[in-house]
Nucleic acid binder design. Sequence first.
DNA 1: CGTTTGTTTGAAGATGATCAACGTAAGTGG
DNA 2: CCACTTACGTTGATCATCTTCAAACAAACG
Lengths: 226, 226
Amino acid sequence: METLQLTSSDRTTFLGSRFFVRLPRSTVDAILEDTRLSTYEEHDVLFHQGDSIDDVFFLLSGLIRLYRVGKDGREADVAVFSKGEMFAENAMCLGRATASAEAAEASIVARIDGAKLRQLAAADADVAQAFIEHLCHRGKMTEDLLAQDRLLTAPQRVASYLLGHCPNGTATSFSFRLPFQKSVLAGKLGLAPEALSRAFSTLRQSGVTVKGRMIEIHDRHALERF
Amino acid sequence: METLQLTSSDRTTFLGSRFFVRLPRSTVDAILEDTRLSTYEEHDVLFHQGDSIDDVFFLLSGLIRLYRVGKDGREADVAVFSKGEMFAENAMCLGRATASAEAAEASIVARIDGAKLRQLAAADADVAQAFIEHLCHRGKMTEDLLAQDRLLTAPQRVASYLLGHCPNGTATSFSFRLPFQKSVLAGKLGLAPEALSRAFSTLRQSGVTVKGRMIEIHDRHALERF
DNA sequence: CGTTTGTTTGAAGATGATCAACGTAAGTGG
DNA sequence: CCACTTACGTTGATCATCTTCAAACAAACG
């Protein structure tokens, strides 16, 4: 975890992200002014549940897993973030982190000073608005996860995840590469890795082929029916 | 669902709620200015998942259940609100309701005009700030639910719920009345009513007595260990 | 009182977790 | 480039937990 410089490609990532897109360039610059970069290796922990942190995190590359730990030490993922996503906004408002965060692969993270962001949000309604929209979106994401956990079986959850990666066009078949290890996907879907594996073999009957991280969906509609 | 007048007790509810407490009286008045009241009977539906609504709802009395419906028609609660809580803020930002809402008992609801609230938030940083804090809190709530679903068994979830209602003092025993039907609690905890019932009988061994809606906890620490 | 609604209990079934073993892919270093 | 090693993924078997359906029971309400 060392400090680096902000590259121009990092700037692009910032500007293209959900939070920053709508904001004028000058505002973004103000926010990024004293932003510290940190790099993490796989399994490095960014912070622990309950830590008092006053920063907002922005992922420039890699993969971050947000999780809670049960009394018995078992971990449950609450969210998984990839490049261009902002996280730990809750901590800034509530004072303490509601979950722990660790790198699921080597990652580069920008830490935005919470005090500064609050101050900017108070002064600039656009920033506040962007923040509000971001929080709504995050809320929907966890609500989605919760509903999926409560309504869908393992194969259905996987099918739902896969469909979320299909383009909305007319094409009935589609293929793509998993953006992370299967064990990470399992965690994100609230499944044991074995359960994910079995879910994939169930879906083979519905025209899903898996080779390594490559996924082929031969008939989207068969998945939707599932 | 008819329109009524705002009573002074309603005003108290507003002023005491998490969202409004920090705001100056004049701001609250501005927000409430053209707020419509509606009453609902048990099982009345306020809106459906996907409806485009541009209002924020505030519960003055009763009980509202937010839920999603699966393809097979099964319902999964995403949140349950009681007097003094604000909900459906997501819909205002995202344009469409992310879940359906129905009254779990006779309820009185105030509908705050979304456009007006947005406009106020843009003009008044305090309102924006209150909104942000509210969203953070809601986010934490659903995150809590998700983590509980993934980490705890049924009796543990019930124990956790009960502990949430114990005062933080030194008292080791405590009793209170469930604020709603057991079937509602079951939904909130993501359990079938039968599972909740069985969870309660399991907890009897740990000193929990249930008679109707009355709950007695004889030893808080026994529950914490669970 | 009797009817309706909510809750409990029982028995069966489904689903996913866990543990252990095996297979496979990906590095690593000679 | 090949053998070795390690991490990841799959498969099988078993077990715990929760759901579901059915029936009994209790409470609330007319």
